[in-house]
């Protein structure tokens, strides 16, 4: 591993100053479960590693019925899935947070890191997109909000510019009669990277018979996590039925443009886009109906 220096930033402005000064040779360290591996393997380089775990804004985890959920970028997964509000209001996020890595990874890994690594297979991303998450991004002078589905530009690449960092993720409060679920397909039962995954959020009418709205995103089937508005459109206004779910799953499958690599083949991923979408929707509907 190349030599670098280490700063444990205490404030947002301290971190932003270093990032502004060092440009792309400064790297944020959150849980380190990606960054340390990347630096060790020479896939990223850094002169300065800025530990952001000590910055208060990046460590907040709060919920209000009006504002929804705010998760600091450096909050580790184990805090998220042990949080009573998240358990109650965002079960789809629990799905994702409990299957990233193993327990020891979850002791360190963060959503900020997962999002900023920008892997097409990043497990938190499809469900966060389904939940309509907004990224709060800060630099020395500016703070801005970016919808998560607009955050990614390619494998490992985000809209973040040198000098910027992700502060927090904001999830709106869950709509009435809504439900969400995240499912991934992996060959093992744990410790694996998604071959294909689907995050779904559905909003039903009061009778829970008809889709009022839906959001779906897929993982590992495109250069970035893939928001599929066509799938949501296929459901909106339709009765909850096998036909509607089938149509949404076919729309997701049509949107998928996967590649073949060591984790799976393009044909397999295309097929799984359909299967995972269907299963994630069924689970989301079950939750919306109180299951």
């Amino acid at each position: 591993m190349q030599a670098f220096s280490y700063v444990s930033a205490r404030t947002l402005s301290e971190a932003a100053d270093i990032l502004a000064r060092e440009g792309d040779q400064a790297k944020c360290l959150s849980g380190g479960t990606d960054l340390i591996v990347f630096l060790r393997e020479g896939r990223r380089s850094a002169k300065v590693v800025v530990d952001v775990k000590g910055i208060p804004e990046l460590n907040q985890l709060g919920y209000s019925p009006k504002e929804g959920l705010t998760i600091g970028a450096a909050v580790p997964l184990h805090r998220i899935y042990n949080d009573a509000h998240v358990i109650e209001h965002y079960p789809g996020l629990i799905d994702a947070a409990t299957l990233i890595g193993g327990i020891a990874i979850q002791g360190r890994a963060t959503l900020g890191g997962n999002v900023c690594t920008a892997s097409p297979a990043g497990d938190s991303i499809p469900i966060l997109i389904a939940y309509e998450t907004t990224c709060i991004v800060a630099s020395r002078n500016v703070t801005k909000a970016i919808p998560l589905e607009k955050f990614f530009v390619g494998p490992g690449r985000t809209v973040l510019q040198p000098g910027e960092l992700l502060v927090a993720l904001k999830l709106p409060p869950p709509k009435p009669n809504s439900g969400a679920a995240y499912l991934r397909f992996i060959p093992r039962n744990e410790m694996d990277i998604a071959v294909t995954s689907a995050g779904a959020m559905v909003v039903l009418d009061e009778d829970k018979r008809r889709f009022v709205g839906a959001r779906l995103a897929l993982g590992a089937v495109a250069p970035t996590p893939l928001f599929v508005p066509e799938a949501g459109a296929a459901l909106t206004g339709q009765p909850v039925s096998d036909e509607a779910i089938e149509a949404a799953a076919r729309a997701a499958q049509a949107a998928a443009r996967p590649i073949t690599d060591m984790r799976g083949s393009a044909e397999q991923r295309k097929h799984l886009s359909y299967v995972m979408t269907k299963r994630a929707l069924l689970r989301a509907i079950e939750r919306a109906r109180g299951g």
């Binding site: 060959p187 093992r188 039962n189 744990e190 410790m191 694996d192 990277i193 690599d261 060591m262 984790r263």
Partner: peptide, 16 residues
């Protein structure tokens, strides 16, 4: 060799 890690060379875990 593209899968030279224990994440991608998939040996059984306790859950498998």
């Amino acid at each position: 060799l593209m899968n030279a890690s224990l994440l991608d060379y998939r040996m059984p875990t306790a859950l498998d």
